[in-house]
Design a protein around this nucleic acid. Structure first.
Lengths: 197, 197, 197, 197
DNA sequence: AATGAATGAGCTTTCATTCAT
DNA sequence: GATGAATGAAAGCTCATTCAT
């Protein structure tokens, strides 16, 4: 039932999705949907929370598996987990990235807060990398915040891209982004790459 | 009149925006809106096209001004123009990035196509940079496509970020992204940077 | 179970009362309610009939106890019984007077018919009183009908009033109405009263 | 439009009345009803207030016309106006007496308050009559309150009765009630009557 | 050129009612 | 004997859209 809701919400958006459509896709009657989840808004909230939790858990698990490794290795693990998850659950990703972020809809603030947490986590990774590199956070705090936004945005965009083209594997997407993020275009053009680093 | 529409659409989204609100904000009567733009869908389309054209023009002008320069210089010029424009027209940017991309809404395909053009342009810049570096497109075409997606996504995300924090100037956002894109986190942590390149 | 129904119907009215609420207050499941009383309408009908019968019985018993007395004494007995009963069963009275009389609801006609019987009984009392006074029904039939309506309406109104103010005893309400009905305002103002008659 | 609403509300009650029915009877579309009166509740409130004001105005005008007369003459004038009005506007009377008083519906409290004002006015008439009779309020305040309730209830009941039987004129109903209220059943049976008083 | 007035269609939500167990 | 689970039908309300002026 929530799978149906996630799919419909992901495809149509919160406003355009009708409870009739969701109930029909779920193969149940509308009142049943209301019996379990009391309103459209609550249903949407439940979808968002479920998908967000699944995504965050997947990434956290990936990062945790790279436990004591260096910051770049942790980032690499997180990216693989992220692209793997978004590829596996395209509807969930569509709800989170494609719909819930839409301003004005309910839970937009909540979703923004969850994204902010992700950005904060990435920020901490960057700071850790800086420490590992030369013992101090050489980059100004403000710039690190911008870099984290850039990295997260890049990942989101690539998730959409990889999701639309089935031939792009999660690992490939993660590798491309990791190279980009670590050595930049300049480094890549010089033949360097993160993996070799 | 279209300014009002852009603002309302940007704040509320296509479905949640009501023609009453738009007409009221524009200070005209609803039938007048229908006289000029025949339906909500057409009105939305007109908004999207206007804002997309304005954004593309701004970026193109910025890049053109860096006419014969190297590819990285052209990218730098484009980024400055991009962040400058999104900061100046937050409503327009909200419509383009925050709403029109929502799947299921009319024109989502059209907006996706326009974004694809931007990605293609960035791709050509990357290819040009590769040529400048050592005469051949050393990176596989497929990887270049991914890099362009990453770069565009990073820029979009930073535009939202810079738009939400008035203290971040367009130049600062552009500089941060340019460094990130060119030398990567690794390079930045080693003290390198694009500007110095 | 019917107690619960009477209370809910009395407080909310037929339409606003929900079968869920009734079942919950009764502490049973909804299908059980349907097992015993087949529909909302029948349940309401059963409530009405039960309460109407209880009220009519109470008044009849009161009047019967004043068996061979004069008509005014019988009226006095009936009024005491009436106010005593409505005070004891406020929910039942609320259903009968406050809800079931509402036009358009099922059983409105039935309730009206029961009320008409009461009016007819009061009419017969008035006629009997006339016979006792001077051997013939001195008042035109039509006027007697109106008087009975007035008397019943006065009693209903006072039942609501006494029900809302716990300090008003059934006996006090009955006495006030009896005086009013027998000697009228004029008589009361002249210091006369029914009891002294 | 409000006439239609008054009729439907009067016949079916607040809950059972549907906005579709009201709109259809009014010969307009549902949204138009919502354009003028924003919700079902507001529409009902407007009906109640309009009918209550009309009734109160009618009675007040009747009483005022009997300006400096004695209290019983004022009561007589008020009763005639009351029965005249309820006969002329049966739908309005049905809404006020038959529906709006139903517990639990919106505005029940408001309607109860208006009725309380009427009772207070009748109370003042009774007190005035007592003063005219022998200079002091010989009846206990508490009893006067009960008498006013009885009188108002009698009038309400007779209005329903007279409304259901077209052959009963407003004047006749008023005369019957006036006699009843002034000399009581006892007095009427002795051949006395208010008019002769 | 511009609008007040009006509506068809659709959405969310509720509720009396019924099975399968 | 009793119920958890499920639904058909309807109601309140909104909105894009049009016409007569």
């Amino acid at each position: 039932m929530m799978d149906a809701a996630v799919r419909i919400f992901g495809q149509r958006g919160y406003r355009a999705a009708s409870m009739d459509d969701i109930a029909e896709l779920a193969g149940v009657s509308k009142p049943l949907v209301y019996l379990y989840l009391n309103s459209k808004e609550e249903l949407f909230g439940a979808c968002i929370r479920r998908e967000a939790a699944a995504l965050v858990d997947a990434v956290r698990d990936g990062v945790s598996a790279a436990g004591g490794d260096s910051a770049d290795r942790q980032l690499w693990a997180g990216l693989r987990a992220f692209f793997g998850h978004t590829a596996e659950r395209p509807d969930g990703w569509a709800v989170l990235h494609g719909q819930a972020r839409t301003q004005g809809e309910p839970f937009a603030a909540e979703v923004a807060a969850m994204r902010a947490e992700v950005v904060a986590f990435v920020t901490s990774l960057v700071v850790a990398a800086a420490r590992e590199a030369h013992g101090d956070p050489s980059l100004p705090e403000r710039e690190v915040a911008g870099l984290a936004q850039a990295l997260v945005g890049a990942a989101e965009s690539m998730a959409d891209w990889a999701g639309a083209d089935a031939s792009v594997s999660a690992r490939e997407a993660a590798a491309t982004l990791m190279n980009f993020a670590w050595v930049g275009l300049g480094g890549m053009l010089e033949g360097r790459g993160w993996v070799s680093a």
